[in-house]
């Protein structure tokens, strides 16, 4: 088991670096010049300024050398300096990532916490009103555009009913907690700041629901299908023939088998939530990676783009590894 993990981690590292190479090549072939984006029209018309600027950022070097410099920095844990913010990319990412991860994780828990029980109920009481309700919920979740959903939610709960706070991570006049992890829910708790915790949690409600909506639908449907499939298996009939209670049969025999496909989906879903945060963050003014990515891409900020790529692919690969490990926990057939 341990060896599998180590092998997989090594593989993940190689994959992540390969991903940066791909992004590096793509970024350098897209039309557009960071010079224009950064210096503005007037400065960019002065060849000397441009040359000096290019030399400063190493953009005058051959492509392979630029990439080599990136790799050398990477080996030392240095992702370079952002052209736009003039700060180390790692620092930028460390500043923006926690907001996104916090939002995506809450959305993920929400999706699992609603989707799985709803899927179970829909399968157990198949063709009843529960099933119908679950179908409506997943249909709405899967088919509403995030952007639209976000505005509607804001309009109703913040603008109309005024029971939800507005955009942002905290009340505009509140002070952010001392940074330990960057996750406000955790940091406020660590500081013993109940007010702050409540505020942070309240601000998470709408964006995480919006972000999770599609995933809730997917997980509900997958759980329902997997449950129905497992309920048709022979061992379920055997459990009934043994005189086990129906509740026991569903929870102990059907559910563990049905969760196996749900875990696969869950891994993919988490990666998608991270990526999907861009839209939600924009509407809710959420100072996260999504917005950082958007800005860096617009500015053709190569070091930042590479850094984000690296972070996203590492996260994706780690989540995949976690999925495989939980597979092994759920399904003894893949255990070694």
């Amino acid at each position: 088991m341990l060896r599998t993990v180590v092998t997989r981690l090594a593989g993940a590292a190689v994959m992540a670096v390969l991903a940066t190479l791909v992004i590096f090549l793509i970024a350098n072939t897209v039309p557009g010049d960071p010079v224009l984006a950064q210096l503005g029209d007037i400065a960019a018309s002065n060849p000397a300024t441009v040359a000096e600027w290019r030399a400063k950022w190493g953009l005058d070097l051959p492509l392979w050398e630029q990439y080599l410099i990136f790799l050398r920095g990477l080996a030392q844990g240095d992702l370079g300096t952002s052209i736009a913010s003039q700060r180390p990319v790692l620092e930028d990412i460390a500043q923006y990532a926690p907001a996104t991860v916090e939002l995506a994780s809450i959305a993920f828990l929400l999706a699992l916490g609603i989707g799985i029980p709803l899927g179970i109920a829909a399968a157990v009481w198949r063709d009843s009103w529960v099933d119908a309700a679950a179908r409506v919920v997943s249909l709405i979740g899967v088919s509403s555009p995030t952007f639209w959903l976000a505005f509607i939610m804001l309009a109703i709960f913040y603008g109309g009913l005024q029971i939800a706070p507005g955009p942002g991570r905290l009340d505009p006049i509140a002070f952010p907690p001392d940074e330990v992890t960057g996750f406000f829910l955790v940091d406020t708790l660590l500081a013993g700041d109940w007010e702050g915790f409540r505020d942070a949690a309240a601000h998470l409600v709408l964006p995480s629901i919006v972000l999770a909506a599609a995933t809730i639908g997917l997980i509900t449907r997958t759980t329902r299908a997997a449950m129905l499939e497992a309920m048709g298996q022979d061992y379920v009939r055997v459990s009934r023939a043994k005189g086990m209670r129906e509740r026991y049969t569903i929870l102990r025999h059907v559910l563990p088998n049905a969760l196996i496909p749900v875990v696969t989906l869950g891994g993919l879903a988490y990666a998608n939530l991270l990526a999907g945060a861009v839209m939600t963050e924009t509407v809710f003014s959420w100072p996260g990676l999504g917005r950082y990515t958007f800005r860096s891409a617009a500015a053709l900020d190569f070091p930042a783009i590479m850094g984000i790529t690296l972070v996203v692919s590492v996260t994706y690969l780690l989540v995949n590894l976690l999925v495989d490990l939980s597979y092994a926990m759920l399904d003894p057939r893949v255990r070694r």
Partner: peptide
Amino acid sequence: LRGDRMAMVFQDPMTGLNPVIRILRQLTEP
């Protein structure tokens, strides 16, 4: 009564046992 006074064994032993539960629990649960 089922699994206590009257028990049943089915045809296909390959699918009749739950793949993710140890033999022990499947035997002791009734």
